Simulated assay, not measured.
Amino acid sequence: MSTTDLDVVGRESLSFTVRGPWAHFRRVDATTEKLTYRVMPRTTVAGLLAAVLGEPRDSYYDTFSKETSAIAITPECELQTQSIPQLTLPTKGGNIKTADGVSGKTVVDPEVIAKERKRRTFEYVVDAAYRIDLVLDDTETFERVAKFLESGRSTYTPSLGKTECLADITDVTRSTVKDDGNPEEVDSTVPEEHVVPTPGEPLRMERTPAYMEADAGGRKTTGFVSYAFAPADQTLTAPSAPVRSINGRSVCFL
Rank of each mutant, 00 (worst) to 15 (best):
M1V: 13
S2V: 10
T3V: 15
D5G: 15
D7Y: 09
D7E: 14
V9G: 08
G10E: 05
G10D: 02
R11G: 00
S13L: 12
S13E: 11
T17E: 14
G20F: 07
P21A: 05
P21T: 02
P21C: 02
P21L: 00
R26N: 03
V28Y: 14
T32G: 04
T32Q: 11
K34C: 09
T36P: 03
Y37H: 15
R38S: 12
T44W: 11
L48N: 03
V52Q: 06
L53R: 09
L53H: 03
G54F: 09
P56K: 10
Y61W: 10
T63W: 02
F64P: 00
E67T: 10
E67C: 01
T68N: 15
S69N: 05
P75N: 04
E78D: 13
E78Q: 07
E78S: 12
Q80D: 14
Q80K: 15
Q82M: 15
I84K: 13
G93T: 10
G104N: 02
K105T: 14
T106Y: 13
T106N: 12
V107Q: 10
V107L: 09
P110L: 08
P110I: 05
E111L: 11
I113K: 05
A114Q: 10
K115R: 10
K118G: 01
E123S: 07
E123R: 07
Y124V: 03
Y124C: 04
A129T: 07
R131E: 13
I132Q: 05
I132V: 14
L134R: 02
V135E: 00
D137W: 09
D137T: 08
F142V: 01
E143S: 12
R144N: 11
A146P: 00
L149K: 01
S154I: 01
T155Y: 13
Y156I: 06
S159M: 08
S159D: 07
S159F: 09
S159H: 13
C165D: 03
L166H: 14
L166E: 14
T170R: 06
D171W: 02
V172F: 12
T173C: 06
D179R: 01
D179H: 06
D180P: 02
N182S: 03
P183M: 05
P183L: 09
E185S: 11
V186F: 11
S188K: 01
V196H: 01
V196R: 10
P197K: 06
P199N: 08
E201F: 06
P202Q: 01
R204V: 00
T208D: 11
T208M: 13
T208Q: 15
P209M: 03
A210S: 14
T222C: 07
G223L: 02
F224H: 13
F224N: 09
A228S: 12
A230V: 04
A230I: 03
A232R: 13
D233W: 08
L236C: 10
L236W: 04
T237E: 07
P239E: 09
S240I: 02
R244M: 13
I246F: 14
N247V: 01
N247S: 14
G248Q: 03
G248S: 04
V251W: 05
C252W: 00
